[in-house]
């Protein structure tokens, strides 16, 4: 019998239109993984800014719930940006893969995210193909 477990993803994005699209891309990828005998269930949490994301990760760490398997992080957000949120999440000792998803794809932007503790960077808009590569890279597919 194929190994099946729940995949928990945290989507950090301030724009509703982007959250709607990203959520659908992630949901489709989870369905595909299920069809291939991989993870069959998806828990998708959303945070509208970096501070809300840090709180979500803190709550997950202190609750009985399993930690996140993947965090998709936008850069430019109100209250707290993606760099700072990534730094704070890493400061909590969380090792969940954090993938920056941003429209600012200059080398300096990528380096800043990596310096903050992100594992990978992908440019917006996130496609099914790009997410598939990310899931494969972190062995989530």
């Amino acid at each position: 019998m194929a190994h099946r477990k729940m995949m928990r993803v945290l989507l950090v994005e301030d724009e509703e239109i982007n959250r709607l699209e990203l959520a659908q891309v992630v949901a489709r990828a989870a369905l595909k993984a299920a069809a291939g005998g991989g993870d069959d269930d998806l828990v998708l949490d959303e945070a509208e800014n970096g501070a809300a994301a840090v709180q979500r990760v803190r709550d997950a760490a202190t609750a009985a719930a399993a930690p996140y398997d993947l965090i998709l992080m936008d850069k430019q957000m109100p209250v707290m940006d993606g760099h700072e949120a990534t730094r704070r999440i890493r400061g909590m000792g969380v090792t969940t893969p954090i993938v920056a998803v941003s429209s600012d794809g200059l080398p300096a932007d990528v380096e800043a995210f990596v310096a903050a503790g992100a594992d990978d960077f992908t440019s917006k808009p996130l496609s099914k193909e790009k997410l598939g590569d990310i899931l494969a890279k972190f062995r989530l597919a």
Binding site: E16, I17, L20, E21, A27, P125, S127, K128
Partner: peptide, 20 residues
């Protein structure tokens, strides 16, 4: 890409995104 993301689980996906 948006059109391809619309399926039976999200039949109004394109119109939701366009309206937003």
């Amino acid at each position: 890409q948006l059109q391809m993301l619309q399926d039976s689980t999200a039949p109004d996906f394109v119109s939701e995104v366009v309206t937003l």
